[in-house]
Every structure is written in C-alpha cells, then in structure tokens.
C-alpha cells in the first residue's frame, strides 16, 4: 500500500486541506469558505479533498491539523501550530525562503527561518485584527466593493492619505469620513494597503529582516497587499501560486516527515477551542472575535 499524508488547516474563515502522496507531491488541495470556524465545513473540505485524490479516510498514513481551529479537527494524529506549518510549507514550496509573512483572516505573523527551513523566531500581531484579512473586509465594506476588487482599486491609487486608526472598529468611521470629504476610493484603498504594509514591516522588525521573503495566507492572494509590502520592505516578495494552502501543505509535509506518528509531545486532545475574549490594548474596547458558533 502506498502512503498518503493529510494536512488540514482550519482557519478563522476557511478550511484548507492538502493530500500528499508518498513522494510528497500534492494529490489534492481544497479550500472551503466557512464564514466562521466550523467542524462541518472542515469535514466537508476533508471529504472533497480525499475524493479528488480518489482516497478514503483509511488510506491516510498520517495526518496533522493546524490553524486557529486545529483542536476542532476530528480524527487527526496530532496538531501543530500555524507557525511551524507555514514555515515548513513555505520552505518546501519556495526553497531558500528565510522569511514567511502569513496574513490570515484574523492574525498576521512574521516567521524567520534558518537556512534549513526550521523556524528560528516568530512574531504575531497582538490581540486585534489590525492589518489582517478582517481589516480588509472592513475596507471593502466602507468603500463598497468586493474583496476581490480591492487590489485593482488600490493599485490605481496615488495619494497617500494618513490612516491613523488601525483598529478595525475605528477604521471604518475614519474611512467613511474620508469618503465624505470626497477622497477617491482608489486613494483610500491604496492608503489602507500602505498602512497595513507599514504595520507588517513593524512585525517583521521584531524577528529581523531576512530574505528571500514569501507571503502566505489568504491575504497574499490580494496582489496589492504583496505589492505594498514589497514597497515597504524595498525587497522582492514572492507569493506562491496558492498562498492559502501553505499551512495545510506544511502540515501534510510534517505528517510525511514522520511527525504525525511520533510520540505526541504536546499531549493534546481534540477539545473545543474556545474563542478567547481579546482585549485590544490600543483601544478601550473588548472584542470577542470569530463568528457565532
């Protein structure tokens, strides 16, 4: 029997599943939009991916779950954090990578890798949604466009407006008042992207600048986000073909590395991951993030 490896990345808004064959080639990759962390969405993504690969659950040799909802994934050998998985995935997808910038639905990370692709250091955004996918949703809502249209608009903007509120709650009012003052949607979109890039550069500073740089996570699909990050870093930023699946890909690779069957050091059980109440310390609000369950 040939071996197959399963990597599952259950994020805040999407579930990503990757199936690898014995040689590490991708047999199937699946992304399912959920709206909120959901077991059902995740199970569906797993089933679809296995179907695509023409496999049954029993054909899987080893499996690893990662992502914000990793402890919710059922019937999995063990879990790894997004940090380790994105590092592993990016290093395999883009050999030589030294810095991974992962921006997902509600958090962003800078992950420094050593020359063997092992995580050296990492930094995560603190407690609030500033500069994450959630933040771009706020932007899209304020300037009334679809998420997919943001990049096109932002790349046409040439004015540098000061966006002072990086808090998702306050940014919306600020953006609306910019519109009220007659600022162009393109300029607003460009300015928000630039502001997010500045924040990300700050996050990168915490781990130290390295290159080559690879951008992963859902936000990397936004060409403008990568463009402004490259501008802010004054360095090339590579975006893999499917930046969203890098975490799941890394998880599957770790399963293939043998980590899936190894003694479970972390001793985790699959339990309900409660949504933590997050106090955003740069403002006075307490936000509970994540959708209803």
């Amino acid at each position: 029997m040939t071996a197959h490896y399963l990597g599952v990345d259950l994020g805040s808004t999407t579930a990503k599943v990757v199936v690898l064959d014995e040689g590490g080639a991708i047999e199937a990759a699946e992304v399912v939009q959920m709206g909120a962390v959901s077991r059902k969405g995740c199970a569906q993504a797993m089933t679809t991916a296995l179907d695509t690969a023409g496999l049954h659950r029993g054909d899987v040799t080893a499996s690893i779950a990662t992502g914000y909802g990793r402890r919710l994934v059922e019937d999995i050998d063990r879990t790894f954090t997004e940090i380790t998985c994105h590092g592993r995935g990016a290093a395999a997808m883009c050999p030589g990578t030294r810095l991974v910038v992962d921006i997902g639905g509600q958090d962003s990370k800078a992950i420094a890798l050593d020359d063997e692709g092992i995580v050296d250091n990492f930094a995560m955004n603190d407690r609030c949604a500033s500069g994450t996918g959630r933040f771009f949703e706020v932007l899209a809502r304020a300037i009334e466009c679809e998420i997919d249209e943001l990049a096109g608009l932002a790349l046409q903007g040439d004015k540098d407006l000061e966006v002072s509120s990086m808090c998702a709650t306050f940014a919306e009012t600020e953006l609306i008042s910019m519109l009220a003052q007659g600022e162009r949607r393109e300029d607003i979109a460009a300015s928000v992207h630039r502001a997010v890039a500045t924040r990300t550069v700050g996050l990168i500073a915490q781990v130290g600048r390295r290159s080559p740089i690879v951008m992963t996570g859902g936000v990397a699909r936004n060409a403008a986000a990568a463009h402004f990050l490259a501008e802010g870093m004054q360095a090339e930023v590579t975006v893999p073909e499917s930046p969203q699946i890098i975490g799941a890909y890394g998880a599957a690779l770790l399963a293939r590395d043998g980590a899936g069957r190894a003694a479970v050091g972390a001793g985790e059980t699959t339990t309900d991951a409660r949504e933590p109440a997050r106090s955003c310390n740069t403002c006075d609000l307490t936000l509970t993030m994540g959708g209803p369950r």
Partner: peptide, 14 residues
C-alpha cells in the same frame, strides 16, 4: 489617546 513619538497609537476619529 496618542503618544509622544509613536504615530500608531493616535486615532483621529476618536
């Protein structure tokens, strides 16, 4: 809210 030298703590709308 704001700061002496770190621009990011200031929120204009507030």
């Amino acid at each position: 809210e704001g700061d002496i030298a770190d621009a990011s703590f200031y929120k204009d709308e507030v």
